[in-house]
Design a protein around this nucleic acid. Structure first.
Lengths: 266, 266
DNA sequence: TTTTTCCGATAACCCAGGTTAATCAAGCCT
DNA sequence: AGGCTTGATTAACCTGGGTTATCGGAAAAA
Protein backbone atom coordinates (compact mmCIF):
# COMPACT_ATOMS: atom_id res chain seq x y z
CA UNK A 1 0.00 0.00 0.00
CA UNK A 2 1.85 3.00 -1.25
CA UNK A 3 1.13 6.24 0.53
CA UNK A 4 3.29 8.38 -1.68
CA UNK A 5 0.84 8.30 -4.54
CA UNK A 6 -1.68 10.49 -2.77
CA UNK A 7 -0.86 13.66 -0.93
CA UNK A 8 -4.37 13.75 0.48
CA UNK A 9 -3.73 10.51 2.30
CA UNK A 10 -0.41 11.82 3.48
CA UNK A 11 -2.10 14.98 4.67
CA UNK A 12 -4.81 13.10 6.57
CA UNK A 13 -2.33 10.62 8.02
CA UNK A 14 -0.78 13.60 9.71
CA UNK A 15 -3.67 13.63 12.12
CA UNK A 16 -4.35 9.98 12.69
CA UNK A 17 -3.51 6.55 11.39
CA UNK A 18 -6.04 5.56 8.76
CA UNK A 19 -7.75 2.24 8.21
CA UNK A 20 -7.75 0.75 4.73
CA UNK A 21 -11.43 1.59 4.39
CA UNK A 22 -10.66 5.19 5.21
CA UNK A 23 -7.95 5.25 2.61
CA UNK A 24 -10.32 3.83 0.07
CA UNK A 25 -12.81 6.57 0.85
CA UNK A 26 -10.12 9.18 0.42
CA UNK A 27 -8.93 7.74 -2.84
CA UNK A 28 -12.43 8.21 -4.21
CA UNK A 29 -11.85 11.93 -3.92
CA UNK A 30 -9.09 11.66 -6.45
CA UNK A 31 -10.81 9.66 -9.13
CA UNK A 32 -10.70 12.30 -11.82
CA UNK A 33 -7.34 14.03 -11.98
CA UNK A 34 -7.00 16.88 -14.41
CA UNK A 35 -3.97 18.82 -15.58
CA UNK A 36 -4.32 22.58 -15.27
CA UNK A 37 -1.96 25.31 -16.40
CA UNK A 38 -0.74 28.28 -14.39
CA UNK A 39 -3.33 31.03 -14.34
CA UNK A 40 -6.27 28.71 -14.97
CA UNK A 41 -9.33 29.85 -13.08
CA UNK A 42 -10.96 26.83 -11.44
CA UNK A 43 -14.06 28.81 -10.65
CA UNK A 44 -15.20 32.33 -10.03
CA UNK A 45 -17.16 34.10 -7.34
CA UNK A 46 -20.86 33.39 -7.55
CA UNK A 47 -20.46 30.35 -9.74
CA UNK A 48 -22.73 27.58 -8.66
CA UNK A 49 -20.94 25.47 -6.04
CA UNK A 50 -21.64 21.77 -6.23
CA UNK A 51 -18.26 20.21 -5.96
CA UNK A 52 -14.90 20.38 -4.26
CA UNK A 53 -11.43 19.82 -5.43
CA UNK A 54 -8.26 18.28 -4.16
CA UNK A 55 -4.99 19.78 -5.20
CA UNK A 56 -2.49 17.08 -6.17
CA UNK A 57 0.25 19.16 -7.71
CA UNK A 58 1.05 22.83 -8.00
CA UNK A 59 -0.05 25.84 -5.99
CA UNK A 60 -3.38 27.62 -6.12
CA UNK A 61 -4.99 30.61 -4.43
CA UNK A 62 -8.47 31.82 -3.69
CA UNK A 63 -9.40 35.47 -4.05
CA UNK A 64 -12.20 38.00 -3.95
CA UNK A 65 -12.51 40.89 -6.35
CA UNK A 66 -13.50 44.07 -4.58
CA UNK A 67 -15.63 46.91 -5.75
CA UNK A 68 -12.76 49.27 -6.47
CA UNK A 69 -10.96 46.95 -8.86
CA UNK A 70 -8.51 45.62 -6.34
CA UNK A 71 -8.64 42.10 -5.02
CA UNK A 72 -7.84 40.24 -1.86
CA UNK A 73 -6.10 36.90 -1.99
CA UNK A 74 -7.52 34.81 0.81
CA UNK A 75 -5.72 31.53 0.85
CA UNK A 76 -2.75 29.81 -0.68
CA UNK A 77 -3.32 26.12 -1.36
CA UNK A 78 -0.52 23.58 -1.44
CA UNK A 79 -0.59 19.99 -2.71
CA UNK A 80 -2.71 17.82 -0.41
CA UNK A 81 -5.16 20.60 0.41
CA UNK A 82 -8.86 20.39 -0.28
CA UNK A 83 -10.17 23.43 -2.09
CA UNK A 84 -13.67 24.73 -1.56
CA UNK A 85 -14.47 23.35 1.88
CA UNK A 86 -15.19 26.95 2.75
CA UNK A 87 -18.34 26.79 0.63
CA UNK A 88 -19.77 23.64 2.14
CA UNK A 89 -22.77 25.54 3.46
CA UNK A 90 -23.31 27.62 0.37
CA UNK A 91 -24.78 27.09 -3.02
CA UNK A 92 -22.60 29.76 -4.59
CA UNK A 93 -18.87 30.23 -4.59
CA UNK A 94 -17.81 32.96 -2.22
CA UNK A 95 -14.40 33.28 -3.77
CA UNK A 96 -12.66 32.55 -7.02
CA UNK A 97 -9.81 30.06 -7.25
CA UNK A 98 -6.92 30.15 -9.69
CA UNK A 99 -3.73 28.20 -10.24
CA UNK A 100 -0.42 29.84 -9.48
CA UNK A 101 1.60 27.04 -11.03
CA UNK A 102 0.92 24.35 -13.53
CA UNK A 103 -0.62 21.53 -11.53
CA UNK A 104 -3.13 18.72 -11.15
CA UNK A 105 -6.53 18.97 -9.50
CA UNK A 106 -9.22 16.35 -8.85
CA UNK A 107 -12.84 17.38 -8.72
CA UNK A 108 -15.26 15.46 -6.54
CA UNK A 109 -18.93 16.03 -5.89
CA UNK A 110 -20.50 17.38 -2.76
CA UNK A 111 -22.02 13.98 -2.15
CA UNK A 112 -18.65 12.38 -1.44
CA UNK A 113 -18.28 14.40 1.70
CA UNK A 114 -21.66 13.30 2.97
CA UNK A 115 -20.62 9.72 2.29
CA UNK A 116 -17.59 10.28 4.45
CA UNK A 117 -19.74 11.68 7.23
CA UNK A 118 -21.86 8.54 7.03
CA UNK A 119 -19.12 5.98 6.75
CA UNK A 120 -16.18 7.13 8.79
CA UNK A 121 -16.25 9.19 11.93
CA UNK A 122 -12.47 9.15 11.90
CA UNK A 123 -12.33 10.94 8.59
CA UNK A 124 -15.14 13.19 9.71
CA UNK A 125 -13.19 14.22 12.76
CA UNK A 126 -10.11 14.82 10.64
CA UNK A 127 -12.09 16.94 8.21
CA UNK A 128 -13.37 18.91 11.12
CA UNK A 129 -9.85 19.28 12.41
CA UNK A 130 -8.67 20.50 9.03
CA UNK A 131 -11.45 23.00 8.88
CA UNK A 132 -10.71 24.20 12.37
CA UNK A 133 -7.05 24.49 11.52
CA UNK A 134 -7.91 26.51 8.46
CA UNK A 135 -9.88 28.82 10.64
CA UNK A 136 -6.89 29.21 12.89
CA UNK A 137 -4.77 30.14 9.89
CA UNK A 138 -7.38 32.59 8.74
CA UNK A 139 -7.57 34.14 12.18
CA UNK A 140 -3.84 34.58 12.36
CA UNK A 141 -3.91 36.18 8.94
CA UNK A 142 -6.68 38.48 10.04
CA UNK A 143 -4.56 39.71 12.91
CA UNK A 144 -1.64 40.04 10.60
CA UNK A 145 -3.56 42.23 8.20
CA UNK A 146 -5.41 44.22 10.80
CA UNK A 147 -2.64 45.01 13.18
CA UNK A 148 0.81 44.70 11.88
CA UNK A 149 3.17 46.91 9.89
CA UNK A 150 4.12 46.16 6.31
CA UNK A 151 7.42 44.65 7.42
CA UNK A 152 5.70 42.34 9.85
CA UNK A 153 3.06 41.38 7.33
CA UNK A 154 5.54 40.33 4.72
CA UNK A 155 7.83 38.63 7.22
CA UNK A 156 4.88 36.79 8.66
CA UNK A 157 3.65 35.59 5.32
CA UNK A 158 7.02 34.33 4.21
CA UNK A 159 7.65 32.59 7.49
CA UNK A 160 4.23 30.98 7.43
CA UNK A 161 4.86 29.59 3.97
CA UNK A 162 8.25 28.41 5.14
CA UNK A 163 6.66 26.49 8.00
CA UNK A 164 3.91 25.03 5.86
CA UNK A 165 6.44 23.78 3.37
CA UNK A 166 8.57 22.35 6.15
CA UNK A 167 5.56 20.45 7.42
CA UNK A 168 4.82 18.86 4.10
CA UNK A 169 8.43 17.76 4.09
CA UNK A 170 9.07 19.66 0.91
CA UNK A 171 12.21 21.37 2.15
CA UNK A 172 14.87 21.33 4.80
CA UNK A 173 16.73 24.64 4.91
CA UNK A 174 15.51 28.19 4.42
CA UNK A 175 15.71 28.07 0.69
CA UNK A 176 12.62 27.52 -1.40
CA UNK A 177 10.54 28.44 -4.38
CA UNK A 178 7.81 31.01 -3.78
CA UNK A 179 6.04 31.36 -7.10
CA UNK A 180 4.14 34.55 -6.29
CA UNK A 181 4.74 37.88 -7.97
CA UNK A 182 5.07 40.98 -5.84
CA UNK A 183 1.67 42.02 -7.04
CA UNK A 184 0.16 38.76 -5.80
CA UNK A 185 1.93 39.25 -2.50
CA UNK A 186 0.52 42.75 -2.30
CA UNK A 187 -2.98 41.42 -2.95
CA UNK A 188 -2.45 38.86 -0.23
CA UNK A 189 -1.19 41.31 2.34
CA UNK A 190 -3.34 44.30 1.59
CA UNK A 191 -0.36 46.37 0.54
CA UNK A 192 0.58 48.10 -2.68
CA UNK A 193 2.98 46.29 -4.97
CA UNK A 194 5.30 49.27 -4.66
CA UNK A 195 5.49 48.91 -0.94
CA UNK A 196 6.13 45.19 -1.18
CA UNK A 197 9.10 46.04 -3.33
CA UNK A 198 10.32 48.62 -0.83
CA UNK A 199 9.96 46.10 1.96
CA UNK A 200 11.89 43.41 0.11
CA UNK A 201 14.65 45.95 -0.47
CA UNK A 202 14.79 46.65 3.24
CA UNK A 203 14.88 42.93 4.04
CA UNK A 204 17.66 42.42 1.55
CA UNK A 205 19.77 45.12 3.21
CA UNK A 206 19.16 43.61 6.60
CA UNK A 207 20.01 40.16 5.28
CA UNK A 208 16.64 38.83 6.39
CA UNK A 209 15.25 37.65 3.07
CA UNK A 210 16.95 37.32 -0.27
CA UNK A 211 14.41 37.13 -3.04
CA UNK A 212 15.20 36.57 -6.66
CA UNK A 213 12.64 35.76 -9.27
CA UNK A 214 10.45 33.13 -7.69
CA UNK A 215 12.94 32.02 -5.18
CA UNK A 216 13.65 33.11 -1.63
CA UNK A 217 16.48 32.36 0.73
CA UNK A 218 16.20 32.85 4.45
CA UNK A 219 19.67 33.10 5.94
CA UNK A 220 18.18 33.18 9.44
CA UNK A 221 14.58 31.98 9.64
CA UNK A 222 14.42 32.61 13.38
CA UNK A 223 15.28 36.26 12.92
CA UNK A 224 12.47 36.53 10.41
CA UNK A 225 10.06 34.92 12.85
CA UNK A 226 11.09 37.48 15.44
CA UNK A 227 10.44 40.38 13.10
CA UNK A 228 7.03 38.90 12.34
CA UNK A 229 6.24 38.31 16.01
CA UNK A 230 5.31 34.90 14.79
CA UNK A 231 3.31 32.79 17.18
CA UNK A 232 3.66 29.29 15.87
CA UNK A 233 1.34 27.51 18.21
CA UNK A 234 -1.41 27.84 15.64
CA UNK A 235 0.51 25.95 13.01
CA UNK A 236 2.87 23.46 14.52
CA UNK A 237 2.70 20.47 16.77
CA UNK A 238 -0.15 21.65 18.86
CA UNK A 239 -2.02 20.49 15.79
CA UNK A 240 -1.31 17.12 17.24
CA UNK A 241 -4.33 17.23 19.38
CA UNK A 242 -6.04 15.23 22.04
CA UNK A 243 -8.96 15.29 19.75
CA UNK A 244 -9.54 11.60 19.99
CA UNK A 245 -9.99 11.23 23.69
CA UNK A 246 -10.60 7.56 23.92
CA UNK A 247 -14.30 7.32 23.27
CA UNK A 248 -13.48 4.49 20.93
CA UNK A 249 -10.30 2.57 20.65
CA UNK A 250 -10.41 2.87 16.91
CA UNK A 251 -10.32 6.62 17.18
CA UNK A 252 -7.40 6.84 19.49
CA UNK A 253 -4.70 9.12 18.24
CA UNK A 254 -1.88 7.27 16.62
CA UNK A 255 -0.03 9.95 14.85
CA UNK A 256 1.76 9.05 11.68
CA UNK A 257 4.48 11.49 12.65
CA UNK A 258 5.33 10.00 15.97
CA UNK A 259 5.73 6.68 14.20
CA UNK A 260 8.38 8.25 12.01
CA UNK A 261 10.17 10.29 14.58
CA UNK A 262 9.45 8.72 17.89
CA UNK A 263 7.91 10.78 20.67
CA UNK A 264 8.91 14.38 20.43
CA UNK A 265 10.65 15.76 23.47
CA UNK A 266 10.17 19.29 24.80
CA UNK B 1 -41.88 19.50 22.26
CA UNK B 2 -41.01 23.09 22.85
CA UNK B 3 -38.31 24.52 20.62
CA UNK B 4 -38.20 27.88 22.31
CA UNK B 5 -36.38 26.56 25.34
CA UNK B 6 -33.14 26.01 23.44
CA UNK B 7 -31.58 28.51 21.10
CA UNK B 8 -29.14 25.89 19.92
CA UNK B 9 -31.98 23.82 18.58
CA UNK B 10 -33.49 26.90 17.00
CA UNK B 11 -30.14 27.69 15.46
CA UNK B 12 -29.67 24.20 14.06
CA UNK B 13 -33.26 24.01 12.84
CA UNK B 14 -32.37 26.91 10.62
CA UNK B 15 -30.46 24.52 8.43
CA UNK B 16 -32.59 21.42 8.45
CA UNK B 17 -35.53 19.84 10.21
CA UNK B 18 -34.29 17.77 13.11
CA UNK B 19 -35.40 14.35 14.27
CA UNK B 20 -36.23 13.84 17.92
CA UNK B 21 -33.02 11.89 18.37
CA UNK B 22 -31.08 14.80 16.96
CA UNK B 23 -32.77 17.15 19.34
CA UNK B 24 -31.96 14.88 22.21
CA UNK B 25 -28.30 14.89 21.20
CA UNK B 26 -28.33 18.67 21.06
CA UNK B 27 -29.97 19.01 24.41
CA UNK B 28 -27.11 17.06 25.92
CA UNK B 29 -24.91 20.00 25.02
CA UNK B 30 -26.88 22.16 27.38
CA UNK B 31 -26.93 19.98 30.45
CA UNK B 32 -24.95 22.29 32.68
CA UNK B 33 -26.08 25.89 32.35
CA UNK B 34 -24.17 28.49 34.30
CA UNK B 35 -24.84 32.14 34.97
CA UNK B 36 -21.94 34.43 34.12
CA UNK B 37 -21.58 38.16 34.65
CA UNK B 38 -20.46 40.77 32.15
CA UNK B 39 -16.69 40.81 31.85
CA UNK B 40 -16.23 37.21 33.01
CA UNK B 41 -13.39 35.54 31.18
CA UNK B 42 -14.51 32.05 30.11
CA UNK B 43 -10.98 31.10 29.25
CA UNK B 44 -7.69 32.63 28.15
CA UNK B 45 -5.24 32.05 25.37
CA UNK B 46 -3.14 28.97 25.93
CA UNK B 47 -5.43 27.50 28.52
CA UNK B 48 -5.88 23.82 28.02
CA UNK B 49 -8.78 23.25 25.64
CA UNK B 50 -10.88 20.23 26.44
CA UNK B 51 -14.40 21.49 26.19
CA UNK B 52 -16.73 23.73 24.27
CA UNK B 53 -19.50 26.00 25.29
CA UNK B 54 -22.91 26.98 24.05
CA UNK B 55 -24.09 30.50 24.65
CA UNK B 56 -27.69 30.55 25.85
CA UNK B 57 -28.05 34.16 26.88
CA UNK B 58 -25.98 37.31 26.55
CA UNK B 59 -23.19 38.30 24.19
CA UNK B 60 -19.58 37.18 24.25
CA UNK B 61 -16.44 37.83 22.26
CA UNK B 62 -13.18 36.09 21.56
CA UNK B 63 -9.91 37.99 21.43
CA UNK B 64 -6.18 37.74 21.13
CA UNK B 65 -3.74 39.87 23.06
CA UNK B 66 -0.91 41.08 20.90
CA UNK B 67 2.70 41.71 21.76
CA UNK B 68 2.38 45.48 21.92
CA UNK B 69 -0.37 45.51 24.53
CA UNK B 70 -3.19 45.97 22.08
CA UNK B 71 -5.66 43.25 21.34
CA UNK B 72 -7.76 42.05 18.45
CA UNK B 73 -11.36 41.02 18.96
CA UNK B 74 -12.01 38.14 16.62
CA UNK B 75 -15.59 37.14 16.93
CA UNK B 76 -18.81 38.29 18.52
CA UNK B 77 -20.98 35.45 19.79
CA UNK B 78 -24.74 35.70 20.08
CA UNK B 79 -27.16 33.38 21.87
CA UNK B 80 -27.36 30.03 20.07
CA UNK B 81 -23.73 30.08 19.00
CA UNK B 82 -21.22 27.42 19.94
CA UNK B 83 -18.04 28.86 21.37
CA UNK B 84 -14.69 27.18 20.87
CA UNK B 85 -15.32 25.14 17.73
CA UNK B 86 -12.31 26.97 16.38
CA UNK B 87 -10.09 24.97 18.72
CA UNK B 88 -11.41 21.53 17.78
CA UNK B 89 -8.04 20.53 16.38
CA UNK B 90 -5.99 22.06 19.15
CA UNK B 91 -5.12 21.17 22.68
CA UNK B 92 -4.67 24.80 23.67
CA UNK B 93 -6.96 27.77 23.36
CA UNK B 94 -5.91 30.02 20.54
CA UNK B 95 -7.98 32.91 21.79
CA UNK B 96 -9.53 34.13 25.00
CA UNK B 97 -13.28 34.46 25.42
CA UNK B 98 -15.08 36.94 27.63
CA UNK B 99 -18.67 37.95 28.26
CA UNK B 100 -19.88 41.31 27.05
CA UNK B 101 -23.19 41.05 28.87
CA UNK B 102 -24.46 39.09 31.79
CA UNK B 103 -25.53 35.75 30.34
CA UNK B 104 -25.76 32.00 30.53
CA UNK B 105 -23.30 29.49 29.10
CA UNK B 106 -23.30 25.68 29.05
CA UNK B 107 -20.02 23.79 28.98
CA UNK B 108 -19.82 20.44 27.31
CA UNK B 109 -16.87 18.11 26.80
CA UNK B 110 -15.04 17.44 23.61
CA UNK B 111 -16.42 13.94 23.62
CA UNK B 112 -19.97 15.14 22.96
CA UNK B 113 -18.96 16.30 19.52
CA UNK B 114 -17.45 12.95 18.65
CA UNK B 115 -20.67 11.32 19.80
CA UNK B 116 -22.53 13.53 17.39
CA UNK B 117 -20.21 12.55 14.58
CA UNK B 118 -20.93 8.93 15.38
CA UNK B 119 -24.64 9.12 15.86
CA UNK B 120 -26.03 11.70 13.48
CA UNK B 121 -24.72 12.58 10.09
CA UNK B 122 -27.41 15.24 9.87
CA UNK B 123 -26.04 17.06 12.86
CA UNK B 124 -22.53 16.47 11.60
CA UNK B 125 -23.38 18.10 8.31
CA UNK B 126 -24.97 21.03 10.12
CA UNK B 127 -21.94 21.44 12.32
CA UNK B 128 -19.83 21.45 9.24
CA UNK B 129 -22.11 24.00 7.68
CA UNK B 130 -21.87 26.20 10.75
CA UNK B 131 -18.14 25.98 10.70
CA UNK B 132 -18.04 26.80 7.02
CA UNK B 133 -20.36 29.72 7.59
CA UNK B 134 -18.13 30.95 10.35
CA UNK B 135 -15.24 30.81 7.98
CA UNK B 136 -17.19 32.87 5.52
CA UNK B 137 -17.84 35.48 8.18
CA UNK B 138 -14.19 35.48 9.12
CA UNK B 139 -13.18 35.90 5.50
CA UNK B 140 -15.49 38.82 5.04
CA UNK B 141 -14.07 40.39 8.17
CA UNK B 142 -10.58 39.84 6.90
CA UNK B 143 -11.38 41.75 3.75
CA UNK B 144 -13.05 44.42 5.78
CA UNK B 145 -9.99 44.91 7.96
CA UNK B 146 -7.44 44.58 5.20
CA UNK B 147 -8.97 46.73 2.56
CA UNK B 148 -11.53 49.19 3.65
CA UNK B 149 -11.48 52.67 5.14
CA UNK B 150 -12.46 53.38 8.72
CA UNK B 151 -15.92 54.52 7.63
CA UNK B 152 -16.49 51.33 5.71
CA UNK B 153 -15.18 49.17 8.51
CA UNK B 154 -17.50 50.61 11.07
CA UNK B 155 -20.47 50.68 8.71
CA UNK B 156 -19.79 47.11 7.76
CA UNK B 157 -19.58 45.91 11.31
CA UNK B 158 -22.76 47.61 12.38
CA UNK B 159 -24.64 46.36 9.38
CA UNK B 160 -23.39 42.83 9.89
CA UNK B 161 -24.61 42.85 13.48
CA UNK B 162 -27.89 44.26 12.28
CA UNK B 163 -28.33 41.37 9.86
CA UNK B 164 -27.30 38.73 12.36
CA UNK B 165 -29.80 40.06 14.86
CA UNK B 166 -32.47 40.17 12.19
CA UNK B 167 -31.78 36.52 11.41
CA UNK B 168 -32.19 35.41 14.98
CA UNK B 169 -35.50 37.23 14.92
CA UNK B 170 -34.42 39.48 17.74
CA UNK B 171 -35.49 42.69 16.04
CA UNK B 172 -37.54 44.15 13.27
CA UNK B 173 -36.50 47.74 12.52
CA UNK B 174 -33.10 49.37 12.55
CA UNK B 175 -33.10 50.00 16.24
CA UNK B 176 -31.17 47.76 18.59
CA UNK B 177 -28.88 47.36 21.53
CA UNK B 178 -25.18 47.10 20.73
CA UNK B 179 -23.48 46.56 24.06
CA UNK B 180 -19.93 47.29 22.90
CA UNK B 181 -17.87 50.25 24.02
CA UNK B 182 -16.04 52.31 21.43
CA UNK B 183 -12.83 50.79 22.67
CA UNK B 184 -14.17 47.30 22.02
CA UNK B 185 -15.29 48.40 18.59
CA UNK B 186 -11.82 49.77 17.97
CA UNK B 187 -10.27 46.48 19.03
CA UNK B 188 -12.63 44.68 16.69
CA UNK B 189 -11.94 46.88 13.71
CA UNK B 190 -8.26 47.51 14.14
CA UNK B 191 -8.80 51.22 14.67
CA UNK B 192 -8.03 53.56 17.54
CA UNK B 193 -10.85 54.36 19.91
CA UNK B 194 -10.39 58.01 19.02
CA UNK B 195 -11.02 57.34 15.39
CA UNK B 196 -14.09 55.26 16.14
CA UNK B 197 -15.45 58.28 17.92
CA UNK B 198 -14.61 60.55 14.99
CA UNK B 199 -16.34 58.15 12.66
CA UNK B 200 -19.47 57.94 14.75
CA UNK B 201 -19.57 61.72 14.77
CA UNK B 202 -19.41 61.75 10.99
CA UNK B 203 -22.16 59.13 10.76
CA UNK B 204 -24.33 61.13 13.11
CA UNK B 205 -23.99 64.23 10.95
CA UNK B 206 -24.85 62.24 7.85
CA UNK B 207 -27.82 60.68 9.62
CA UNK B 208 -26.45 57.19 8.96
CA UNK B 209 -26.12 55.89 12.49
CA UNK B 210 -27.32 57.37 15.72
CA UNK B 211 -25.51 55.88 18.67
CA UNK B 212 -26.20 56.60 22.27
CA UNK B 213 -24.84 54.62 25.14
CA UNK B 214 -25.25 51.01 24.11
CA UNK B 215 -27.97 51.63 21.64
CA UNK B 216 -27.92 52.34 17.92
CA UNK B 217 -30.58 53.48 15.54
CA UNK B 218 -30.26 53.06 11.79
CA UNK B 219 -32.62 55.48 10.06
CA UNK B 220 -31.74 53.95 6.70
CA UNK B 221 -30.06 50.52 6.90
CA UNK B 222 -29.76 50.28 3.12
CA UNK B 223 -27.74 53.48 2.98
CA UNK B 224 -25.42 52.04 5.60
CA UNK B 225 -25.03 48.86 3.58
CA UNK B 226 -24.09 50.96 0.57
CA UNK B 227 -21.41 52.85 2.48
CA UNK B 228 -20.04 49.51 3.67
CA UNK B 229 -20.12 48.00 0.19
CA UNK B 230 -21.82 45.17 1.97
CA UNK B 231 -22.06 41.93 0.06
CA UNK B 232 -24.72 39.98 1.85
CA UNK B 233 -24.49 36.73 -0.03
CA UNK B 234 -22.18 35.40 2.64
CA UNK B 235 -24.69 35.85 5.40
CA UNK B 236 -28.21 35.57 4.17
CA UNK B 237 -30.38 33.00 2.50
CA UNK B 238 -27.69 31.47 0.42
CA UNK B 239 -26.99 29.81 3.72
CA UNK B 240 -30.02 27.77 2.79
CA UNK B 241 -27.92 25.37 0.85
CA UNK B 242 -28.26 22.43 -1.39
CA UNK B 243 -26.01 20.69 0.99
CA UNK B 244 -28.26 17.70 1.36
CA UNK B 245 -28.40 16.57 -2.19
CA UNK B 246 -30.55 13.50 -1.82
CA UNK B 247 -28.02 10.89 -0.85
CA UNK B 248 -30.47 9.82 1.80
CA UNK B 249 -34.08 10.70 2.17
CA UNK B 250 -33.54 11.40 5.84
CA UNK B 251 -31.04 14.07 4.97
CA UNK B 252 -33.13 15.88 2.48
CA UNK B 253 -33.38 19.56 3.17
CA UNK B 254 -36.61 20.47 4.82
CA UNK B 255 -35.96 23.89 6.08
CA UNK B 256 -37.66 24.90 9.28
CA UNK B 257 -38.00 28.36 7.84
CA UNK B 258 -39.84 27.40 4.72
CA UNK B 259 -42.35 25.68 6.96
CA UNK B 260 -43.00 29.03 8.60
CA UNK B 261 -42.98 31.17 5.55
CA UNK B 262 -43.94 28.96 2.70
CA UNK B 263 -41.54 28.40 -0.17
CA UNK B 264 -39.48 31.47 -0.76
CA UNK B 265 -39.68 32.90 -4.28
CA UNK B 266 -36.73 34.31 -6.17
C1' DT C 1 17.31 39.72 -33.67
C1' DT C 2 14.10 43.04 -32.48
C1' DT C 3 9.88 44.14 -30.22
C1' DT C 4 6.66 43.79 -26.69
C1' DT C 5 5.28 42.65 -22.32
C1' DC C 6 5.90 41.94 -17.73
C1' DC C 7 8.06 42.56 -13.38
C1' DG C 8 10.64 44.91 -10.12
C1' DA C 9 13.17 49.24 -8.16
C1' DT C 10 13.33 53.88 -6.78
C1' DA C 11 11.78 58.69 -6.01
C1' DA C 12 8.39 62.55 -4.91
C1' DC C 13 4.33 63.66 -3.00
C1' DC C 14 0.17 63.20 -0.02
C1' DC C 15 -3.44 61.67 3.11
C1' DA C 16 -6.02 58.44 6.32
C1' DG C 17 -5.69 57.36 10.51
C1' DG C 18 -2.52 56.89 14.76
C1' DT C 19 -0.97 59.38 19.01
C1' DT C 20 -1.20 62.46 22.69
C1' DA C 21 -3.57 65.33 25.43
C1' DA C 22 -7.18 68.15 27.31
C1' DT C 23 -12.06 68.30 28.53
C1' DC C 24 -16.62 66.68 29.77
C1' DA C 25 -20.55 63.77 31.12
C1' DA C 26 -22.19 59.88 33.64
C1' DG C 27 -22.33 56.51 36.90
C1' DC C 28 -20.30 54.85 41.57
C1' DC C 29 -18.68 54.71 45.84
C1' DT C 30 -18.62 56.28 50.91
C1' DA D 1 -22.35 66.10 48.53
C1' DG D 2 -17.93 65.46 46.81
C1' DG D 3 -14.10 62.61 44.79
C1' DC D 4 -13.06 58.60 41.26
C1' DT D 5 -13.32 56.09 37.43
C1' DT D 6 -14.79 54.98 32.85
C1' DG D 7 -16.24 56.46 28.18
C1' DA D 8 -16.77 59.75 24.75
C1' DT D 9 -15.50 63.98 22.20
C1' DT D 10 -12.46 67.20 19.90
C1' DA D 11 -8.09 69.33 18.47
C1' DA D 12 -3.05 69.41 17.02
C1' DC D 13 0.43 66.99 15.20
C1' DC D 14 2.94 63.16 12.82
C1' DT D 15 3.95 58.99 10.05
C1' DG D 16 3.32 54.59 7.37
C1' DG D 17 2.17 53.41 3.45
C1' DG D 18 -0.74 54.67 -0.90
C1' DT D 19 -0.28 56.85 -5.48
C1' DT D 20 1.83 58.18 -9.63
C1' DA D 21 5.47 58.17 -12.51
C1' DT D 22 9.80 56.83 -14.57
C1' DC D 23 13.28 53.47 -15.65
C1' DG D 24 15.78 49.00 -16.32
C1' DG D 25 16.14 44.22 -17.11
C1' DA D 26 14.38 39.56 -18.34
C1' DA D 27 11.44 36.68 -20.73
C1' DA D 28 8.22 35.86 -24.34
C1' DA D 29 6.70 36.76 -28.82
C1' DA D 30 7.56 37.80 -33.49
Amino acid sequence: MNVQDSCIIRHFSHFCRLSDDDKKLLRRLEESPEQVKAGTVLWQEEDRASEFCTLSRGWAYSYRNLGDGSRQILEIYLPGDIIGLREFAFSQRLAGVAMIDDGVVCHFPHRRLLEIFNQSSTLTAILFAISSRQQALLTERLINLARRTAHQKLAHFIYEMFLRLLQTGALSDGDFRLPLSQEQLADTLGLSAVHVSRTFSAFREQGLVLRERHHVKLPDPEALARVAEFDDCYLNDSVRPIFFDGTEAAMRLTNAHSADEGPVPK
